[in-house]
Amino acid sequence: MRSQDVLQHVTTPLVNPAFAPVTPRFTDREYLNIVYRTDIDALRAVVPEPLRIEEPLVRFEVMKMGDVSGYGPYTESGQAIPVSFEGERGEFLHAMYLDNFPATASGREVSAYPKTIGTPRLYVDHGALVGTLDYGSLRVATATMGYKHHSLDPAEAAAQITVPTYMLKLAPGYDGAPRVAELVRSRITDITVKQAWTGPARLQLFEHVLAPMADLPVLEVVSASHIITDLTLPRVTPVHDYLSEAQR
Rank of each mutant, 00 (worst) to 15 (best):
Y74C: 13
R89Q: 14
K64C: 07
R44L: 13
D28C: 09
S111E: 12
L57E: 04
G127L: 04
T38S: 05
V62P: 00
T119P: 04
P56C: 10
R108I: 12
F101P: 08
F101S: 07
G107N: 01
N33W: 08
F60A: 04
L43R: 00
E88F: 08
S69V: 09
S69A: 08
I117R: 11
E30M: 10
L32F: 10
E55F: 08
E61Y: 15
T116F: 12
K64L: 12
N100Q: 14
A103W: 00
P56E: 13
E61H: 13
E30T: 08
S111F: 15
K64P: 02
T75A: 12
L51I: 07
R37M: 13
G70Q: 06
D125K: 08
A95D: 07
Y123D: 08
F85N: 02
Q79S: 08
M65Y: 03
E109S: 11
S84M: 03
E91P: 00
G87W: 03
N100L: 09
E61W: 13
D41Y: 14
Y36K: 05
V47E: 05
L98Q: 07
D67T: 10
V58N: 01
G66Y: 10
Y71W: 14
E86G: 11
E109N: 12
P102I: 04
Y71C: 05
S84F: 04
T119L: 13
N100P: 11
Y31I: 06
P73R: 07
T119W: 13
G87N: 04
R44D: 12
P50H: 04
